[in-house]
Design a protein around this nucleic acid. Structure first.
Lengths: 129, 129
DNA sequence: CTATGTACCATGTATATAAGGGGTACATCT
DNA sequence: AGATGTACCCCTTATATACATGGTACATAG
């Protein structure tokens, strides 16, 4: 598994790592069921912090690309190749884009949309206005 | 028109002003067609900055509560009472809430949703992953 | 004892934004 | 000249967040 991490890149480190693993799965370098390095091992190899690798692993598991089996380590998900093409972030971006467009069409300013979003994500819901 | 502005309130000054004017329109204190104080005049009376009052007026005109007629001043919109009950911000909040819920249901983290939203509103659209 | 993933505490850096203010200037019409 | 709404420029304040890092600790199973 050859993954290159560029400290100076704009893309976050954990995202680079995710991309590298997904690419390896897609290319077959990482076959379904194959074991992945432990978090600490990979962090050491790539000169990353444990938490950065752990974050990438958690998101990859959430996306059904890998599977963690506790003390037994982490493995490529049996159906990894079926899920590696689905980009959740892209789907989310599309959903949000549609909604924002609808709000703009109703006359809402970007500032208002941002505020509504921020209130929602903070569970504040002051109502305001 | 009796509008009280509380400097120490959490609600922004321009929002307080908007609320006060909408309340006056709703109560009939400000009848459709009635003239409103000029931006500078109202800013002086309420001890606000011109730009704060101008912002409130702009949003109220956008919401069809008032009408500005350039050098002739600003007036209550003829159909103000029909529009005063529609809360654009509440509508926007509802739309966004639905979309965010859908994204969460697909497994997206709040952090990912925030990032997708921020990218969209900045016209960056790096894609990233 | 060692390794696994995971959880929690904390830090620092950088970015983006809201809200409000101060000032200046403009075309318009009276 | 004076008033109108409007449009720029600048600024400070506070808040929220992402990202990455440090350390410590835990239950699990070998």
């Amino acid at each position: 598994m050859q993954i290159t991490i560029d400290i100076d890149a704009e893309e976050p480190l954990f995202a680079q790592l995710m991309g590298g693993i997904k690419a390896a799965v897609s290319a077959g370098t990482l076959a379904p069921g194959a074991p992945l390095p432990s978090i600490r091992q990979l962090a050491n190899d790539l000169d990353l912090n444990n938490k950065t690798v752990a974050k990438a692993y958690q998101l990859l598991e959430r996306d059904n690309i890998i599977q963690t089996k506790g003390y037994r380590g982490t493995f490529v998900h049996p159906d990894a190749k079926a899920h590696v093409d689905f980009d959740l972030n892209a789907w989310v971006a599309g959903q949000i884009s549609d909604t924002v467009e609808a709000c703009r069409a109703r006359g809402a300013t970007d500032s208002e949309i941002r505020i509504a979003f921020a209130n929602l994500m903070q569970n504040k819901m002051n109502g305001g206005q």
